[in-house]
């Protein structure tokens, strides 16, 4: 498991605040460079590089712009593929708001998302600290087990998990969508443990001399120093919980309990296929489902990028 040791060394031991230059701290302390040195590029190669990057930018942004633009078009023009609507209307938003209990769906989703993200962050941090700080017999075996659970396809545990919630009478409620997070999640335990391992041990030995107990060392020293990793965990889980469709499909029955993605699927079934052909409403509901995630991304951009780059360092 030497690969796990690669993590901490790449993160500054104590760096609650990082420079906002957009460079993920997890990447490299080396100075920024513009490409492999020694390969001085011809102007032609430079132009081609920028053309390719420009084309990629269009491909990656255009579908979202198309979607947002279409949500402001009247029904007959949704498919006209213009970027700027010929006739601009806000009608779709009003209609979809009347046709579907969107406010309810949004508040359900916010509730699930906030509970899922906070519980998984707290529990995973506790567990990660248990694995990072203490030395005890059986630790490596247990941690190996944590990693092994990541390999297990969700389908294997999906049915018995449903039966557990069913026997507890929770099917049809929002509980199964988040309560499992009370017990931590292997991926975040792994991620947070890597951050904790980067903290200098002297810090905690000094604190112990000053009379700090195990709980204080965790809550007052380790947690504040690992704020960036906690934010990454919160953001990742927020996104995962917000966008999940499979669990709402399994657990939610009544339209009043739907999350937004589940509701969006219901709207698609009703207005997309179901003979009514109101694609403008489906498009508008898609925008309402997607925009909160885009806002989240622009708020936590740097953390998303750092979190992803750290994940890849396992390789």
């Amino acid at each position: 498991m030497a690969d796990l040791q690669a993590g901490p060394s790449q993160l500054p031991p104590v760096a609650p605040v990082r420079p906002v230059d957009g460079a993920p701290a997890a990447v490299a302390p080396a100075p920024r460079r513009t490409g492999p040195a020694g390969t001085r590029r011809s102007p032609v190669a430079r132009v081609l590089t920028w053309l390719a990057l420009g084309a990629a930018t269009v491909i990656f942004t255009y579908p979202l712009l198309w979607l947002i633009s279409a949500s402001f078009k009247p029904r007959s023009e949704v498919f006209d593929n213009r970027l700027i609507p010929k006739s601009f209307t806000f009608e779709n938003y009003l209609t979809v708001w009347q046709e579907a209990p969107l406010a309810l769906w949004l508040s359900n989703t916010v509730l699930v998302t906030v509970l899922a993200a906070t519980t998984v962050t707290i529990s995973s941090a506790l567990v990660a600290w248990g694995f990072a700080f203490f030395r005890f017999r059986g630790r490596n075996v247990l941690f190996g087990l944590v990693l092994a659970t990541m390999m297990l396809p969700g389908a294997v545990t999906m049915i018995p998990t449903f039966l557990i919630w069913n026997s507890l009478g929770q099917v049809g409620t929002l509980t199964p969508l988040w309560a499992g997070n009370l017990f931590g999640s292997a991926f975040y335990i792994f991620l947070l443990r890597q951050f904790f391992l980067g903290l200098p041990r002297e810090l905690f030995e000094a604190a112990r001399v000053d009379g700090a107990n195990n709980w204080h060392m965790f809550s007052r020293i380790a947690l504040p120093l690992c704020k960036p990793a906690l934010v990454v965990t919160l953001l990742f889980e927020f996104q995962a919980a917000w966008t999940d469709l499979m669990r709402p499909l399994i657990y939610l029955r009544d339209s009043s309990t739907f999350t937004v993605p589940r509701g969006l699927k219901a709207l698609l079934d009703q207005f997309g296929f179901g003979g009514d052909w109101h694609w403008e409403l489906v498009v508008t509901a898609s925008v309402i489902t997607t925009v909160p995630m885009i806002v989240l991304f622009f708020i936590g951009q740097r953390h998303f990028v750092e979190g992803i780059a750290t994940t890849g360092n396992k390789g």
Partner: peptide, 12 residues
């Protein structure tokens, strides 16, 4: 820019 689509919910 390249990461942005990853934020789109799979339903959408």
């Amino acid at each position: 820019v390249f990461y942005l689509p990853k934020m789109t919910p799979p339903v959408a």
